[in-house]
C-alpha cells in the first residue's frame, strides 16, 4: 500500500455525506489539502478507475435532481442547483464514451471548478484519496489515440493499479455542450 490514506477524507467518505462542507472552507481545511498538488481523488466510472487532482474538486455530493436542457449534447444530464448555484451536470461515462452501467446508491456528483464556474460530474463511486509520487506518474502512452485520449492528462500507478488522471479543460470544453443544428432536430 504505497498510497497514503487520508483519515479525514476516509471518515467523511464512510459517512456517505458531502465530503467538504462550507464550514470546512471557513476553517481553512481546504487550503491545507490544496497545498499538496499530488493528491488525487479516485473514482470509478463504468468499471475503470479515474482520478482528478484534489484541488480541482470542491465538493462531493450525493446525486441530486437535474433539469434537462434541450438542444444540448447527450452527456449533459441537465442543470442542477446546489445551494442556489446553478451548474451543468455531466454524465462522465457518456462523456468518456464508456458503456454506461446502472448507477447505484454509491453514485456521487463531483463538484469541480473550472474557469471560476462550478460543474457537476456524475461518477459511479468515489473510492479514495491517494498520493502519487511524481515518479509514479507517466505520460499518456503515445499509442493511446482516439477521441478519448484528449481527456486524459496522465496515467498514475497506485498499488500497481492504473489510475487515469483526467484533463478537466478538455472534459468541460464549452463548444461540445451545444448540439449543432439543434433547430432541425425533432422535426417530423
Amino acid at each position: 500500500m504505497s498510497g497514503e490514506r487520508e483519515d479525514l477524507w476516509q471518515a467523511l467518505l464512510r459517512s456517505g455525506e458531502a465530503v467538504v462542507t462550507d464550514e470546512d472552507y471557513e476553517h481553512g481545511y481546504k487550503r491545507e489539502v490544496r497545498q499538496d498538488l499530488q493528491q488525487y481523488v479516485t473514482f470509478r466510472v463504468s468499471g475503470e478507475v479515474y482520478g482528478l487532482a484534489i484541488h480541482e474538486i470542491e465538493e462531493i455530493s450525493k446525486v441530486f435532481q437535474t433539469t434537462h436542457v434541450p438542444r444540448t449534447a447527450d452527456f449533459l444530464l441537465g442543470i442542477g442547483n446546489v445551494r442556489g448555484r446553478i451548474m451543468p451536470v455531466i454524465d462522465l461515462s457518456r462523456r468518456l464514451r464508456l458503456r454506461p452501467v446502472e448507477r447505484g446508491r454509491a453514485a456521487r456528483v463531483l463538484i469541480v471548478h473550472y474557469n471560476e464556474e462550478p460543474y457537476g460530474l456524475v461518477v459511479d463511486e468515489v473510492m479514495d484519496v491517494i498520493r502519487i509520487p511524481p515518479e509514479a506518474m507517466e505520460d499518456k502512452p503515445g499509442g493511446l489515440t482516439g477521441a478519448r485520449a484528449e481527456y486524459i492528462r496522465a496515467l498514475g500507478r497506485n498499488d500497481g493499479e492504473l489510475v487515469i488522471i483526467l484533463q478537466l479543460p478538455a472534459l468541460l470544453d464549452a463548444k461540445d455542450f451545444v448540439k449543432l443544428a439543434a433547430t432541425e432536430e425533432g422535426r417530423p
Binding site: 436542457v69 444540448t72 449533459l76 442543470i79 451543468p88 464549452a174 455542450f177 451545444v178
Partner: peptide, 11 residues
C-alpha cells in the same frame, strides 16, 4: 447559466 450552457439557442 454557466458558459457551457449559455449559448444554447432559445434558453
Amino acid at each position: 447559466l454557466g458558459s457551457a450552457v449559455r449559448n444554447v439557442p432559445g434558453i
